[in-house]
Amino acid sequence: MKSKGWSSQWLQQIVFTGPATLAFAIIVALPFFMGMFYSITDWNGVGGYNFVGFDNFSRLFHDQTFINSFKFTVKFTIAAVILSNLVGFVLALLLTQPVKSRNVLRTIFFMPNVIGGLLLGFIWQFIFVKGFTAVGDKTGWAFFNLPWLGDEPTAFWGIVIVTIWSTAGYLMVIYISALINVPRDLIEAASIDGATAWQRLRHITVPLIMPAVTIALFLALSWSFKSFDIILSLTKGGPYNSTQSVALNIYNEAFQNNNFGYGTAKALVFFIVVALLTSLQVYLTKRREVQA
């Protein structure tokens, strides 16, 4: 590309990058900085506001519902990240064996992922409330006769189950694409040397697919930590706010209680935690990657 003069370069710069930059500036950048500004006010969404300094932030640390929502989110994230990755990985191991129904199975496992979180939650609300009871009546298994979504532990594990159902297939696809690239001769050499299936998995396969593990953990972490739709439609944060995620807490603070200023302070803290967590996670897993 030869430059055709100064004004033509400027025009090109504007035509090529202008629209995306403008949309980004007013939709993402401006609200981001406005949020920092509002977080030190008592803005209620309409009319004026007063500056309250860091009152919102000190209030945060004594706000029991907010602290509880953080605790719930951390617990839920740990459970969901570990279990959905485990299920996804095991499914990937199964589908990289020469099973005949591989393609159909891959489609089935992936399918729940294309349904939006809101609708997923509603579907499962029915299954937990009505479906499980019917299965419980038929089989007599205590697991199905628990008061699903009615008390704290079943609501918690209910959300975890739905999250696994919807994300395991996605993570599986990532693991499959890494597993098929593990060189066969390495595995064969190890088994000739007498390594058991578990040793081959632990010491050859897993280190070689660490880049995929990074991606899958990163995705699951950021999905779970920001969980909103599934929880809104499955439990609405209940019973007694026990399954209220941070995202849902921020939403309620702003759009139910009209505490916009306080809500933006919570949102800012949430942003900092998410940014730190994701960068830490990527940094830690990157260190364990091995070159093939």
Binding site: I26, I27, V28, L30, P31, F32, M34, G35, Y38, G45, S222, F225, K226, F228, V246, A247, I250, Y251, A254, F260, G263, T264, A267, L268, F270, F271, V274, A275
Partner: peptide, 13 residues
């Protein structure tokens, strides 16, 4: 940036 951390001022802007 999580969506929920900018959604409140977004409504305003």
């Amino acid at each position: 940036i999580p969506f929920q951390s900018i959604m409140i001022p977004l409504v305003k802007t």
